[in-house]
Simulated assay, not measured.
Amino acid sequence: MKQQMKMVLEMDDMQCQNYMKLHGNELFSYMLSNLGSPDSVLRDELIYRLFVKLISEQQLETIQLTHALKELITDRYLFASIDEKGSDDVFIRSFSTLWLTGLFWLDQEHPFMDSELRSKALEKSATYLLQERDTRGFVEGKGWAHSIAHGADLAAMIASHSLVEKRLIPIILEGVASCFWKGGVYVDDEDERLVAIIMSLAKSDYPEEILIEWMEQVFDKLDRKTPKKGYFQSFYHARTNILQFMKTLYFALKKSKRYPKLQSTASFFIQKWQNV
């Protein structure tokens, strides 16, 4: 099957279309079953690359896309062993978020989801960042897990989807805030991917006042968790994550010339907490 995927990746549109008519169901079923393989070559360079090719060239039938979507939002994929940290199932969850991001993108460009399934898929996906506990970036010998970054990409896509229900945005924002307290310090550009969620909301003119209130709540929690004495690693890791996120957000807002009040609020808190 690896050789078949390599071959299809090299095909032009017409060749790929003809191949998918004959072998598409078998190929796509294999890809879906192995999307979270610990083998980084199979997972990243073959399956995910081919998935992107197939959806961007619209080589998949609606029935195939719909089946994949229904599978991806289950405990077998997006929520596989969601309470665990350190297991290989993180690759299943993480790459499920990437597939879902691609499917929601396709649905924006060429709608294929019925309204009930779309609503269910968006709602399920919106809870992912809140539930994910494994914060690993690169896993030696197995490649990128990057579940927080990939989950942020999914959340940004949901936030920008024209048919997203506004009630899901607070869930996504709660998920972003939870990422600061999952343990450890992010070092693989997770802050930029999380900030992209806020920028997606900015582009859709989400109320600035709600985001200011959310930011204040992030720092209120940090204030409540401040050690009265001694050293608590979890607090200082969270503080580092929050400040890095806020600095990245500040410059993103400045560059975009959006949400000046939110930018000013971020500046205030950054200065307040910089040397604490």
Score class of each variant (00 low, 15 high):
residue 1 M to H: 13
residue 5 M to E: 06
residue 6 K to A: 14
residue 7 M to E: 04
residue 8 V to I: 09
residue 10 E to M: 07
residue 10 E to T: 10
residue 15 Q to L: 07
residue 17 Q to V: 14
residue 26 E to Y: 03
residue 26 E to C: 08
residue 30 Y to A: 09
residue 32 L to A: 05
residue 35 L to P: 01
residue 36 G to A: 07
residue 38 P to R: 01
residue 40 S to G: 06
residue 41 V to W: 00
residue 41 V to M: 11
residue 45 E to S: 09
residue 46 L to T: 04
residue 48 Y to F: 07
residue 50 L to I: 00
residue 50 L to Q: 05
residue 52 V to H: 01
residue 55 I to R: 03
residue 61 E to P: 06
residue 63 I to K: 04
residue 69 L to C: 01
residue 71 E to P: 00
residue 77 Y to T: 00
residue 82 I to V: 14
residue 82 I to R: 00
residue 82 I to M: 06
residue 82 I to T: 03
residue 83 D to N: 08
residue 84 E to M: 13
residue 85 K to A: 08
residue 88 D to N: 10
residue 90 V to Y: 10
residue 95 F to W: 12
residue 98 L to Q: 05
residue 103 L to T: 00
residue 106 L to N: 00
residue 111 P to I: 01
residue 111 P to E: 07
residue 120 K to N: 10
residue 131 Q to A: 12
residue 131 Q to W: 00
residue 131 Q to D: 08
residue 139 V to R: 04
residue 145 A to K: 04
residue 147 S to R: 03
residue 149 A to W: 05
residue 155 A to R: 02
residue 157 M to R: 14
residue 158 I to Y: 07
residue 159 A to T: 09
residue 161 H to Q: 03
residue 164 V to W: 10
residue 166 K to A: 07
residue 167 R to H: 12
residue 171 I to S: 01
residue 172 I to P: 05
residue 182 K to H: 05
residue 182 K to S: 06
residue 183 G to W: 08
residue 187 V to P: 04
residue 188 D to H: 11
residue 189 D to K: 05
residue 191 D to Q: 15
residue 191 D to H: 11
residue 191 D to K: 14
residue 192 E to F: 07
residue 192 E to Y: 10
residue 192 E to G: 15
residue 193 R to D: 09
residue 193 R to Y: 00
residue 196 A to F: 05
residue 196 A to D: 11
residue 198 I to S: 04
residue 200 S to H: 15
residue 201 L to S: 06
residue 201 L to T: 12
residue 213 E to K: 13
residue 213 E to R: 11
residue 214 W to M: 07
residue 214 W to H: 03
residue 215 M to N: 03
residue 217 Q to C: 12
residue 219 F to W: 08
residue 221 K to F: 15
residue 223 D to S: 13
residue 227 P to N: 06
residue 228 K to P: 12
residue 234 S to R: 15
residue 236 Y to P: 01
residue 238 A to K: 09
residue 240 T to G: 12
residue 243 L to R: 13
residue 244 Q to S: 15
residue 244 Q to F: 11
residue 247 K to T: 13
residue 250 Y to L: 13
residue 251 F to Q: 00
residue 253 L to H: 04
residue 253 L to P: 04
residue 256 S to E: 14
residue 257 K to Q: 10
residue 260 P to H: 01
residue 262 L to D: 02
residue 262 L to T: 08
residue 263 Q to G: 11
residue 271 Q to M: 14
residue 273 W to S: 07
